[in-house]
């Protein structure tokens, strides 16, 4: 916008709004303003869509969170009562929301380490352990990532059935009497964590594989000559060198898992006995009830939690110098 006004004052504005074309010496000299205008023309479509569908909702959400907006206020989003921080204090004493927060913590604290461990193990073996078929395994392990959660849920509900499910059938071969995964409040969350890890470890694995390429080969050779075993080399060379990658993957996985929604939504609907309801899902439920203001404040609580957890991860895992 600033560029436009500058252009006008210099009296060289092209009324068609197109950047100058053709003229050789002139366009070279006027490159700075032509460039600025061209840049804004290129930026314009993005900026319009971005302001409308991202920036504006973020601001409006913040406003909504301090109001008592309900579904009936849809047409007049600003003609509502300001209630200050009431929504936030209400959330902190809302038993169901606190239950959802505990469930989310359970999911993240078990799910992130499990996913990262699976991914790192797969990446290390694919990188160092084998020479052939590497791309076949890589491809196979990545498949669940690209598939729709809804399709995955349909299949996993069958796999997790108590009597005729594939998982309990396989457990039965080893004499284990599998639980009623999705029907038992104690087993529903482990089932979802298992499913989420299965579905997501492929992404982390690919990033770990990329990170492993940056581990200097000579260090491993030198350590092997000094008699370090595979585990020792992993522990004292690979892991420290991978620290930035682990930070990156744990942050992105953590952010994703803190928002987990689709798994319980399609698998359990939050049940049984609210054992799998998550913060995002509870927010969505409040939205469904028409409590828009309350839902907006819950979404900002999730945002704050994500920011805090990310900051903690950076503290714990940043490179020591």
């Amino acid at each position: 916008m600033a560029a436009t006004s500058e252009v006008t004052t210099r009296g060289e504005a092209d009324p068609t709004g197109r950047p100058p074309r053709g003229g050789t010496a002139k366009s070279r000299r006027g490159g700075a303003f032509g460039e600025g205008r061209a840049a804004w023309i290129l930026a314009l479509p993005f900026c319009l869509l971005f302001l409308t569908f991202t920036v504006w909702p973020v601001i409006q959400s913040l406003f909504m969170s301090i109001t008592d907006t309900r579904a009936r206020d849809l047409k007049t989003p600003f003609a509502v009562d300001i209630v200050g921080l009431d929504n936030f204090t209400k959330a902190l004493s809302d038993d169901q929301f606190l239950q959802a927060a505990r469930n989310t913590a359970y999911f993240v604290l078990v799910g992130v380490p499990l996913t990262l461990t699976m991914a790192l193990a797969a990446a290390v073996v694919l990188d160092r352990g084998i020479t052939k078929l590497r791309s076949v395994f890589r491809l196979g392990f990545y498949l669940p990532v690209i598939t729709s959660i809804v399709a995955v849920a349909v299949v996993w509900r069958f796999l997790l059935q108590e009597d005729s499910g594939l998982i309990n059938t396989v457990l039965g071969w080893f004499g284990i009497n599998g639980p009623n995964w999705l029907g038992d409040p104690n087993w529903s969350m482990p089932a979802l964590i298992l499913m989420a890890s299965w579905r997501n470890f492929g992404t982390a694995m690919i990033i770990f594989l990329a990170g492993l390429q940056a581990v200097p080969w000579m260090l491993h050779e030198a350590a092997a000559i000094d008699g370090a075993g595979a585990w020792q080399r992993f522990r004292h060379i690979t892991l420290p060198m991978l620290r930035p990658t682990i930070l990156f993957v744990s942050v992105t996985t953590g952010i994703g898992y803190l928002q987990f929604f689709e798994e319980p939504f399609v698998m359990t609907n939050g049940g049984p006995l609210n054992s799998t309801i998550s913060m995002s899902m509870y927010t969505y439920k409040q939205f469904g009830f028409g409590n828009y203001g309350y839902a907006a404040s819950l979404s900002y609580i999730i945002f704050i939690v994500i920011a805090v957890v990310t900051a903690i991860q950076f503290r714990l895992l940043r490179e020591k110098d």
Partner: peptide, 19 residues
């Protein structure tokens, strides 16, 4: 905005699209 979770924009976005 890369860091803002989708759930934050969800409600106002719905209001916007509905209006």
């Amino acid at each position: 905005t890369l860091m803002i979770p989708g759930v934050v924009t969800f409600v106002p976005l719905f209001v916007l699209v509905a209006n």
